[in-house]
């Protein structure tokens, strides 16, 4: 179909032509805009702000009830002030999770999304003025418990941490490939319950993740008994050191999947690429 002369007026759209006899013409405009480019632009602004202050930002995602807040509580206790932590909590309702973090003496801000199933870059930007970024080493953003929607929204964070608890199916990475493919590390949580749940195989969960062509580390952690906490904290410290080395060279870090996607699709900047049909110049 031709983009310029109007021959793509079909029986299906002919009724849209003007009734007074003047012709309407159809112009096709090729665009290659990312659908979420407003979100992505805000996410880049968030990331630039974090980078100016050298704050490593980690997005925690999982089903509801997989132990995200418990992992944060155990992490804060284990670090014992060794790193300056702050937390943004996302839930549909209540301040409950933020209150649990504050009870440990750590700054926490709750975003209640109402009915929205995910955090987006603008919601995160709204709470950033309340954070003392200069005095934070690591900011955790606990996303709304949901294995679908949060994976589509860049918040401006540097790393994705996806939790899978042993009370869920070990084939979840196969069922929710978009979410698990985005993980920079996967935590298998509540491993203290494994003895009672012989149907969950951590090896099978890891195999499902590998089928998604992910080489992300799989950390087996019990926030309750402390099993695996050392490996998790080692990973955290190692990523923080890596991030700080990058910042010394004025570089930053994006979640692995997102940076790859941008490079491969050639959409590094969400700018408009018009190929407008020729239009007569009018004075």
């Amino acid at each position: 179909m031709c983009d310029t002369c109007g021959c793509n007026i079909t029986d299906g759209n002919r009724h849209l032509l003007r009734a007074d006899g003047s012709h309407a013409k159809v112009t096709a405009v090729s665009v290659l805009n990312k659908l979420l480019r407003h979100n992505d632009a805000q996410a880049e602004a968030n990331r630039a702000l974090f980078d100016r202050h050298g704050v490593l930002v980690i997005n925690l995602m999982s089903s509801p009830g997989s132990g995200k807040t418990s992992l944060l509580e155990a992490t804060i206790k284990a670090l014992n002030g060794g790193l300056r932590i702050a937390v943004i909590e996302g839930d549909l309702e209540t301040e409950n999770d933020a209150a649990r973090i504050r009870a440990l003496g750590v700054e926490a801000h709750q975003i209640t999304t109402g009915t929205a199933c995910h955090l987006d870059a603008h919601l995160v930007a709204n709470v950033l003025p309340r954070l003392d970024l200069e005095n934070i080493d690591v900011l955790f953003i606990e996303n709304v418990g949901n294995l679908v929607c949060p994976a589509s929204f860049d918040l401006g964070h540097h790393l994705n941490l996806t939790l899978l608890s042993v009370t869920e199916g070990d084939d979840k990475p196969a069922k929710y490939p978009v979410m698990f493919r985005a993980a920079d590390a996967m935590v298998i949580s509540k491993t203290d319950l494994l003895a009672a749940l012989d149907e969950f195989s951590p090896d099978k969960a890891e195999a499902c993740l590998r089928r998604l062509a992910s080489n992300a580390p799989v950390l087996r952690v019990s926030s309750k008994t402390g099993e695996g906490m050392r490996e998790w904290l080692d990973w955290l410290n190692q990523r923080l050191e890596h991030y700080r080395n990058l910042r010394r060279e004025n570089r930053s870090l994006s979640p692995a999947v997102q940076s790859e996607g941008r490079r491969l699709h050639g959409l590094a900047r969400p700018d408009v690429r018009f190929k407008p049909a020729p239009k007569p110049q009018t004075a």
Binding site: K25, V26, A28, S30, V31, L32, S152, A213, L264, H265
Partner: peptide, 22 residues
């Protein structure tokens, strides 16, 4: 497992067709 996804994760507005009065 060391593969790059070269298509399949896009979410793109590719084209729109506009009606203009000539």
């Amino acid at each position: 497992t060391d593969t790059a996804l070269i298509a399949g994760d896009e979410m793109i507005l590719a084209r729109i067709e506009l009606l203009q009065t000539a």
